[in-house]
Design a protein around this nucleic acid. Structure first.
Lengths: 223, 223
DNA sequence: CGTGTTATTGAAGTGTATCAAATTGCGTGG
DNA sequence: CCACGCAATTTGATACACTTCAATAACACG
């Protein structure tokens, strides 16, 4: 067994591959390609054709879309254990967004023919993928309804909670928050200033710390 | 062969099941349940637990979410050939939206154990489902970026094109359009009035007809 | 140690929501 | 098949949440 085999990956136990049979796991190990990415590097670009999928061992990736005005939007965020680039692969479309490294990453690339082979012999794997994509849809729908019907303060509060719970490791800028909830950095600023005035958060330099979880959660639910 | 067997369904050729082997198709035929729904009837409600999935033979279904303000949002629209209710089933969650009949429907219900069995013996089927869900994600992301970065006129124009291309059969109200693009009926109205003034559409009674596809497409792309 | 990115604050503009009231069109039941 | 009643549409006036632009300050990075 080699040191970079999937079984030794720190994300193995909560990955899609943890229930594969030995034989298939071996096939995965021999065919995958292990790659290291540094912050701001690009994994794939909008318009590229998918050749396989990426499994994140460590680090974080953001999926960006830039509209014709030049405004950037964060479509999705991925962390260790997640797979990346599957949407275009499964839909048999080109990538419609660009994957940028948010935090230094260890990533394994799995060629598409291997993915298909594994899915053919292990139905559980397909179910596992379906589960992730289906949850993605849920997530998108929640974000969309928020954007449509909630004021920015609520959405900023939602973002603070989301970032704290799901992705605590990373340092998020006001611009990142804005690109996540579909607004501008200035607007995020003013919401944060309000929260700080009321004592719900502390801002030390550029970092944000929630002081009163209850109050922030409450704001996140307001309309 | 019975008259309501899948092979005789008008949507069979573009359904997920068209490539099933005879044996499995037979299993589907004997286990599915054929149901007729009338306009405004509810197929499932937010909070229900999924027991299987629905395959639409004819008609149209809208997936609604109502926020705490009472505002309705159309999350997704389904027509003949589409499957429905799969997201919650695959994600192993409860339904997070309510499915309402938009146009009288013929629908087949397939119990979840049958779905799983079929997926186990026919990997192609899982791939087909993955494809639909992945396209759904694409669709949601496009709508979300529109809502974030385009003015209402563009989004109304987009909706007109979408409804014309994808779901021409149905009569859409201004409220429906508003619920699709995340705005109010009044705002949709004013956009339509503008389009009519410029001669891009005709409004006869409550129906809307596009007079100048090029102009509407152009507006749909503006920022 | 400078240089560019990020944050901050202010002032001004505007797109869209909201509310209200009149009108039209449509489906439904008699 | 017509009339009725209700929902959808239309229009106007008003309000305001958020964006935009601009200019300064603080920080991080090579």
């Amino acid at each position: 067994m080699k040191s970079d085999d999937c079984e030794n990956c720190s994300s193995f136990s909560n990955s899609h591959f943890c229930n594969l049979k030995q034989k298939n796991l071996h096939s995965l190990n021999t065919n995958k390609k292990h790659i290291t990415f540094k912050k701001r590097e690009i994994i794939f670009r909008e318009g590229d054709s998918p050749q396989g999928l990426y499994c994140i061992a460590s680090g974080m990736v953001r999926l960006n879309h830039i509209d014709e005005e030049g405004n950037e939007i964060i479509l999705r965020l991925y962390k260790a254990g997640d797979i990346l680039g599957y949407r275009a692969l499964f839909a048999e479309e080109k990538y419609h967004a660009t994957a940028v490294v948010q935090e230094d990453c260890e990533i394994c690339f799995i060629p598409q023919n291997i993915v298909k082979e594994l899915m053919a012999v292990e139905p559980e794997l397909a179910w596992s993928f379906l589960k992730q994509v289906s949850k993605e849809v849920h997530n998108m729908e929640d974000r969309m309804t928020s954007i449509i019907s909630k004021p920015v303060q609520s959405r900023v509060a939602e973002a603070l909670i989301y970032f704290k719970n799901e992705l605590p490791a990373s340092k998020w800028t006001r611009r990142d928050i804005a690109e996540w909830i579909g607004t501008t950095p200035e607007t995020v600023m003013r919401a944060l200033a309000q929260f700080e005035d009321k004592g719900f958060i502390f801002q030390e330099g550029r970092s944000i710390r929630i002081a009163d979880d209850g109050a922030i959660s409450k704001i996140a639910q307001e309309y």
